[in-house]
């Protein structure tokens, strides 16, 4: 038996928005530790890794590890039927062929349930090596989304350069160039507005705008985004999910041939 109840059901809706353009289908792995998902995007270029720890759920029971393959267009239809203030409960039997979603309104006067057929996905599991990054930047997620959107008007790739002073985003295209520099913030009242840089050595790497823009669909999950960069290894773009989880996107840099 698997059962997971999340009072703040809107988090699940936001997670869905953060992955549905990148993935057509995905396997959700459930264990006593929580719910995990790991998948390459549809074009097999970027990797999405989602983790929601069991401690973040109001109720979490998972008697046997199970994998639930879901069509994300179908899952999206179901989650759209939940209000932002609803509590969401997922339920499945051991070795399930369906999963049930129950949505309860705050006052418990409206309860709806939907069941969805699961699909068999033969997805390979990838190991993510532990990596020391040359630069780890934390910045407001809305700012990152805006920069990616603004700069992608001018070219297909954004170069991210990081020094101890701050981070710079650059684009060059047919009509000209664009640069946005963010200095590391000295003192900010709100932690969510801070820009912080932990640097071992400076890096400058170029990434496809198309994927960066996909990653920013996770912006509503968290006020801050963390970018981890090192030469020749994939960039990690991480958004926290409440206090109990995260979604990480991996994308390898482009290299001039």
């Amino acid at each position: 038996m698997f059962e997971a109840r999340l009072t703040q059901g809107s988090l699940l809706k936001k997670v869905m928005e953060a992955i549905r353009e990148l993935l057509n289908e995905a396997s959700f792995d459930c264990s006593e530790n929580g719910i995990q998902l790991q998948a390459m995007d549809n074009s097999h270029v970027s990797l999405v890794s989602l983790n929601m720890g069991s401690e973040g759920f109001d109720k979490f029971r998972c008697d046997r590890n199970l994998t639930m393959g879901m069509n994300l267009a179908s899952l999206s239809k179901i989650l759209k039927c939940a209000s932002n203030s609803d509590a969401i409960t997922l339920k499945a039997q051991d070795d399930p062929d369906t999963v049930t979603f129950t949505f309860e309104s705050e006052n418990n006067e409206r309860v709806s349930d939907y069941s969805m057929k699961l699909i068999n996905l033969d997805q390979e599991h990838l190991g993510i090596p532990d990596t020391e990054y040359s630069c780890v930047v934390k910045m407001p997620s809305a700012d990152f989304a805006r920069i990616c959107k603004d700069l992608s008007q001018f070219g297909d790739c954004i170069t991210i350069s990081c020094t101890k002073e701050g981070i710079k985003f650059s684009v060059a295209g047919d009509i000209g160039t664009g640069n946005v520099k963010l200095a590391q913030t000295a003192n900010v009242d709100k932690e969510s507005e801070a820009v912080t840089v932990e640097m071992q050595e400076p890096v400058s790497l170029t990434f496809a705008c198309r994927y960066l823009n996909h990653f920013t669909k996770a912006t509503p999950l968290s006020e801050q985004v963390q970018l981890s960069l090192s030469a020749d290894v994939p960039l990690v773009v991480e958004y926290k999910i409440g206090e109990f989880g995260h979604i990480r996107y991996y994308l390898a840099p482009k290299i001039d041939e």
């Binding site: 390459m40 990838l126 190991g127 290299i255």
Partner: peptide, 14 residues
């Protein structure tokens, strides 16, 4: 190599 190839070489199949 392409971005795709570099992703593949970073991640190992478990």
């Amino acid at each position: 190599g392409s971005v795709q190839q570099r992703m593949d070489s970073f991640f190992t199949v478990v």
